[in-house]
Structures are given as structure tokens and as C-alpha cells.
Simulated scan of single mutants.
Amino acid sequence: MSNSTSTAYSATAQLYANTDFSKLTWLEFQWASFYLWIDNPIIATGLMSFLLHEIVYFGRCIPWIIIDAIPYFRKWKLQPGKIPSKQEQWECTKQVLFSHFTIELPAIWLFHPLTELVGLATWQVPLPSWSTVIPQVAFFFVFEDIFHYFAHQALHWGPLYKHIHKIHHKYSAPFGLAAEYAHPAEVFILGTGTLAGPFLYCAFRGDLHIFAMYVWITLRLFQAVDAHSGYDFPWSLQHILPFWSGAEHHDFHHMAFVNNFSTSFRWCDAIFGTDDKYRQYRAKMDAAKKSGMSMQELAKLEQRMTEEAAREGVEAEKVAESYTYGKTKVQ
């Protein structure tokens, strides 16, 4: 072992000089061992963060790819006539990977120095308890949802839509992989909401551990992929938590182009009235179900309403793209 390597290892090991490893849980022991093994906190944090993102994102997408390939699940497909082809999924994957490696990887690599700047713990053990992590993650969800709502609306403004957000709206019937199918600038803009909450929390409280951020990011990725899945199962979370947006809520946004700008919750859209068309759509469907229509008649009605919303969405998108300062008002 060279002197430089020995010195680096000694510096890394010294971080845990006062740690009693016998009192650590299995996870905490693995956590510390990883940092000691990599022997460089900056590289260890960057590597762990990037791998977590890739494994969770694509790992969560795989079940939806399988579901899309099985006709049995079409009964729960929100737009059953639009099943993504293998070519579409591959094109989507390439764009997602491009953003991951050109935008997210460099940002993640600089993540450790930023965490130290705001005082966020990384290599430290023991890890925080769940009673500490859960309220923090709940705050991050609320903060991100509010940030995303206003940022997403801004991205529907003519110039920003035409040059940035239009890429994400390529698929009027989204699928899991399309959750992060976006222009690199959009990845940066909306990703700010994911990271700003934890950084602000840490700046004011000073007691945040990156483990809580990993829990938050894992759940946020699950939410994003599921919201773009295109399926509404009876056991989907929005049927358990009425304020949860879910795929049924977000799918309408992709289909109709307008309404439903938030991510995790329905609160902002309800407060600011940006779910009016969606509510009308749901009210008509609910009334039809109560009228005693047959399943076949309901299916035809839903298809007709879906096609109508999609046509209106195409027109709304044209309005956004043709925006000129002070002349055209975006819906």
C-alpha cells in the first residue's frame, strides 16, 4: 500500500475513531463499512446517491413495463388504446439516461461538498430514528408539491413550454419510464424542488442526515413513476388517501394538457382552481356510473370523453406553442 493510500485511509478511518461498532445496527454497520471501503467521503456519497437513483428509478419502472406487456391489465389502463411500443420505451430510456448522466450525475458528484456546506450529515452513524425521519420526509413532500405546482405551471408558459417542457408532453398517454423523460433544463428546474426542501430544512434545523434524504428520494421516485404509469388499480393509493394525486390525476394532465399541475397531492390544484376541467370530466363519469349504464356503454362513454379531452389538449398545446408576448393567453 502506498503512503498516499495509507494516509487517505487513515484520514477516513479517523472519522469513526470514537464510534463503537458493536452498538451499531446491521444497516449502520454496512453504512460505515461502505464509507471506509470507498475511502473517500466525496466519492462514497456521490456513488451511493447515483446508484440509489438509478436502481430505484429503473427498478420501479420494470414492473410497469411488464404490466404494459400483459393484456390482462388493460381493464385498469386509463387510456387503453395507447400502449407504449418497445421502440417508444427504448427511445424514452435513451433520453432518460442522457439526462441522468449529463445533468444528474455531475450534480450528484458535487452533492457531498454542498451537504457539508449546509451541515447535512453523510458518513455519520448511528442513523436517525424513524420518528425523526418520517416528519422530515412529510415536510419534503409538502414543500416539493408546492414548488412543483408553480414551477410546472411556469413550464406551460409559451416560450418555456415550446423550448423545454414540450419534450415531456411527447406522450399524451404516459408510462412509467416517461416520468423523467424531459429536457435537461426541466430536470434541473423541477429537481430543485426535490433538493431545496431538505437543504432549507437543514439550513434552519441543522439536524438532517442524508439517510432521510435517501428515504425521501426513494419515495419521490416511486411517486413519479407511479403517477406516469397510466394505470388506476382499485388498490392504488389515491383510493386510500383521497388527497393523493396518483396516476388517474396526472394522466388527465398529459391527456388534456391543462389542469392538474401538482405532483403528490391534489391540494394546490383544488385551492387555485386548476382542476376544473378534470372535475367536470370525473363528475360526468361518476354520474354515468350511477345512471345504471352497462359496462359496455360506460366503456364507450369513457372512450368518447377521453378522445374529446385529448382533442382539446392538442388545441391547448397549439395555443401554448403559438404564444406571443401580450397577445395569446395560455390556458
Rank of each mutant, 00 (worst) to 15 (best):
M1T: 11
N3M: 14
Y9F: 15
A11C: 04
T12Y: 00
T12R: 06
Q14N: 13
Y16H: 03
T19I: 12
F21N: 00
K23M: 02
K23V: 04
Q30D: 13
A32N: 01
S33C: 07
I42R: 15
I43N: 03
T45M: 12
G46W: 08
G46H: 07
M48H: 11
L51K: 10
L52H: 15
H53F: 15
Y57S: 07
G59H: 07
G59N: 09
G59C: 01
R60K: 11
I65E: 10
I67K: 02
D68Q: 11
A69R: 15
R74F: 00
W76S: 03
G81E: 10
G81L: 02
K82S: 07
K82I: 08
I83Q: 12
Q89S: 09
Q89L: 11
C92D: 14
F101H: 09
L110I: 07
H112L: 11
E116S: 03
V118H: 05
L120I: 12
A121F: 02
W123A: 10
P126H: 06
W130C: 08
A138L: 10
A138V: 13
F140I: 02
F143V: 03
H148N: 02
Y149G: 05
G158Q: 14
P159T: 01
Y161I: 08
K162D: 00
H165C: 08
K166N: 00
A173P: 11
H183I: 03
P184Y: 01
A185K: 04
A185W: 09
V187C: 02
T192C: 10
T192R: 00
A196M: 15
F199D: 03
C202T: 12
A203Y: 13
R205K: 14
H209T: 01
I210Y: 14
A212Q: 05
M213Q: 05
W216K: 05
T218W: 00
F222R: 03
F222W: 10
Y231L: 12
F233R: 08
W235A: 15
L237D: 00
Q238V: 06
Q238P: 07
A247L: 02
H250M: 04
D251F: 02
F252E: 01
A256H: 05
F257A: 06
F257Q: 08
N260L: 04
F261H: 12
S264Y: 04
D269W: 10
A270Q: 11
G273W: 11
Y278D: 06
Q280T: 09
A288Y: 01
S294F: 02
Q296H: 03
E297S: 13
E297P: 12
K300Y: 03
K300H: 09
L301C: 11
E302I: 01
R304E: 14
M305T: 08
T306Q: 03
A309I: 00
A310L: 07
E312T: 03
E312I: 00
G313I: 02
E317I: 12
V319S: 08
V319M: 14
S322V: 01
T324H: 13
T324V: 08
Y325R: 10
K329A: 03
Q331Y: 11
